[in-house]
Nucleic acid binder design. Sequence first.
DNA 1: AAGATACCTTGATCTGCATCATATGAATTG
DNA 2: CAATTCATATGATGCAGATCAAGGTATCTT
Lengths: 237, 237
Amino acid sequence: MSDCTIKHDCKNCTTRNTTEWRDLGAKELAILAKAKTSRTFEPGEIIFNQGTQAKGVHCIQSGLIGMRRISEDGKSVLIRLCAGGTTVGYGAFLSKTQQLNSAEVLTPSVVCFIQGSTVSSLLSDNPKIGERFLQHAIADQTKTETDHFMNLTKNVRFKLLHVLLTYYERDGYQDSTGLSTLELPILRRELAELVNAQPETLSRALRELQDEGLLTQDSKQFSFPDMKAITDEIRAF
Amino acid sequence: MSDCTIKHDCKNCTTRNTTEWRDLGAKELAILAKAKTSRTFEPGEIIFNQGTQAKGVHCIQSGLIGMRRISEDGKSVLIRLCAGGTTVGYGAFLSKTQQLNSAEVLTPSVVCFIQGSTVSSLLSDNPKIGERFLQHAIADQTKTETDHFMNLTKNVRFKLLHVLLTYYERDGYQDSTGLSTLELPILRRELAELVNAQPETLSRALRELQDEGLLTQDSKQFSFPDMKAITDEIRAF
DNA sequence: AAGATACCTTGATCTGCATCATATGAATTG
DNA sequence: CAATTCATATGATGCAGATCAAGGTATCTT
């Protein structure tokens, strides 16, 4: 895990046009590419820890990262998942406060780190960057508030269907027989955390959906024989 | 309720220096003062409704506003309270999405409205404004995430003590006998919503604290005979 | 391939809070 | 100052999900 630091340019980064850096010109991109470091992470590795100061921001190029918060008495909550094209840790950096969450790698990932001085100088050079961060912060706030609201008003079954549908809409496909299918490369324990429930409760909810014919599961693959029933149940959130 | 629109300048606004407009120069302040409208609101009035488009942003000059979200099936959650010196509705305006919450007046309030075109032109004139909004969005995000986390990891008793302590730290005082006291100008029902519980559950939690000698209550006045026991219990959140 | 280890499922039981029902007190109105 | 309405309190019951316990199934190790 020592020499996995990589250098490649940002200009041709496949996920840059979903990040704060999408508006950068050639000169700025060169600065960014020069200043950033990039490395691969394996599942279980920590990108940064809750409670630490941010020395810059991290850009996820590919993979899946979990933002986790743990209380003094050891209770752990998976606050959100972040995939390629997402900047993380920007809130703590920009507000000079400590990280609220740890960023934990869930699947093999490539993540860049952009040191604070570079972020600051790009921010003051190009007002577009600040705008992008503002839009990002508002979107995160919207998502957090919606998650919060859902947790207070919906049961585990609903939250589970919602999570599955959300990921299906992003990564799902039709298999060879036309069945709507989703690969979710995370453990049951992690899926349980995503709906803020215990693994036992998740297991029972999955079985209930299976028994009703809404779901078939095979390890990390989930199929939905009756997608309409699911969207009907989830509609209007 | 018809002619309660007031005009006064922003330069001498008592709460301006906690808002996004604290960095404005004299010329910009004149623009702001000219473009804004100001009016008083009574408890129960709605400043804007969930689901509507934002035509600008609202600045609370004084009073107390509740941000409330309601689900299709009628479940209501009080997401946060906002007091004087807070700008609300900016997220929906800046991201051109509909309001997530309704803004509901809880105590008599003075609220200004700044139309969108004015906000936009101030934003593009003065990069400081965008920075302030960014800091505000990050702070809101931090608060929402912390509330969310607390709801998932703490019981009603803890959340109640936390809310009381928070407001005590802002508005509390020692009464004539030296007793730590707080006036909370909201209904039990609203306090219940603040800890995301039913009024019955709140009532029982208050009684429990009373029976333990941590609290005495008289209508909307709460006193804390043993503040140390409370801070000890809440410490480290 | 056997053993060890982590992961997942299922059943039994417990519990915090919601809900329902009703009573009491406080505020508003005729 | 009755009468009505609204706010709060308290008791009884119900339920979703947590927790505890045990067995089953992958996956990794050697």
